[in-house]
């Protein structure tokens, strides 16, 4: 069970307090209606699934309830850092 640093609570808490919410850095098209099918399906379904450092959205669902971005090494299953705020372009 990982210890995850919540940037909002400024505490490392057990993994079971959190919920994984998928890859970070996905940008919802500003005007979805204007997006092509390809752009839209890439946003919906295309994921990088990296081996190594991955940028992930997590929510401290049984704590402060807030979302944040966690950098995690998928090979070592270890947290690197986390930061508050919504995802930015990678």
């Amino acid at each position: 069970m990982l210890l995850i640093p919540c940037p909002h609570c400024r505490q490392s808490r057990p993994e079971r307090e959190f919920r994984h919410c998928g890859e970070a850095g996905l940008l919802r098209p500003v005007d979805p209606a204007a997006a092509s099918d390809r752009e839209w399906t890439d946003y919906l379904f295309a994921r990088t699934n990296p081996k190594g450092e991955s940028q992930e959205r997590w929510r401290h669902v049984h704590g402060c309830g807030r979302f944040f971005v966690l950098r995690r090494d998928t090979r070592e299953d270890a947290c690197v850092t986390s930061r508050a705020g919504v995802e930015e372009a990678p």
């Binding site: 919920r19 919802r28 959205r57 929510r59 309830g65 807030r66 979302f67 919504v86 995802e87």
Partner: peptide, 13 residues
């Protein structure tokens, strides 16, 4: 509720 919070906190901020 999770779905609503997700969009409220990260999309329709």
């Amino acid at each position: 509720l999770h779905h609503m919070e997700d969009f409220l906190q990260t999309e329709f901020t």
